[in-house]
Design a protein around this nucleic acid. Structure first.
Lengths: 143, 143
DNA sequence: ATTGACCTTATAGCTACTATAACCCTTATT
DNA sequence: AATAAGGGTTATAGTAGCTATAAGGTCAAT
């Protein structure tokens, strides 16, 4: 008995990853080259579906495609220690936290700016003024 | 008396924006075309310095270059109402908050994954297992 | 037979830079 | 005066992770 096969569109629908993206993943070697029907259509198996779900989930956690490539290759080495997987997750967590910190700083600043001019004209606009102000590390060209 | 002029490198050093980037900003019309010395070097004024500082500060708040283009053109219309500036800031604030929400969800998930396998092998790795799991909107291809 | 919804490929575009190559200018030192 | 270091100039290609476009082949139904 041969496995059930799916077209790229069916896979797309069931994973939420677009057909173009799936082909792109194949092109960059993130997915193995799909089998083809007589007429040249790609044919996918349940395994591909699972791999794609893995990718989608990892993307959702902010992993880069390169990271995911590594994770996938790790996932295939069932007897390897999972310390390296752990390390990747840890690393990603720190990256996310760093970006969080940046964004929080942005939010703070934007909140400060938001609504600080009440119906005036730009000449008196505190926002524009603030944006134009000196910042650390941006002195005059003669510094 | 003619203004003091600065080279691209001097401007770069004092604004923290690299020379290449400054040239790039000129190329895409974010900065006006700089005057040139006899030998073809770009010559910048204090005004350019201020404009660049504005860009840097806005970038730091996460504004896109297109947003900044608009902000700059608004900043030049001193008698226009600053409602549109306000709106841009507001919009940016919401975008930042949306990204924050995403990142917080990522952090939450990563924290959950982090360190959940204790020195085992990948075959038993809870992380890999979790990443492979079904998610909402990612059923089987036959759904 | 023809429509419409799918599939195929190759190529270019997107953001905001960064890297590279190959060359010209200025300044200081030998 | 020659030369070397450290600027500057241009054009072009590469980065991530897709998305859009064009120009065509396939499949199922009418």
């Amino acid at each position: 008995m041969s496995e059930k096969k799916y077209t790229v569109g069916q896979l797309a629908k069931s994973t939420g990853i677009k057909s173009v993206t799936i082909r792109y993943y194949e092109k960059i070697g993130l997915l193995p080259k799909a089998a083809r029907s007589e007429s040249g259509y790609r044919l996918y198996t349940a395994q591909d579906h699972s791999r794609l779900r893995f990718i989608r989930r990892s993307r959702g956690l902010g992993f880069s495609l390169d990271d995911i490539r590594e994770l996938l290759s790790l996932a295939d080495q069932q007897q390897a220690p999972c310390a390296s997987v752990d390390a990747k997750v840890n690393q990603q967590l720190e990256q996310v936290r760093a970006r969080l910190k940046d964004l929080q700083a942005m939010e703070h600043e934007l909140k400060r700016l938001n609504g600080c001019c009440e119906g005036g004209v730009i000449f008196n606009c505190r926002i524009i003024e603030t944006l134009s102000n000196e910042t650390v590390g941006a002195g005059s060209p003669t510094d």
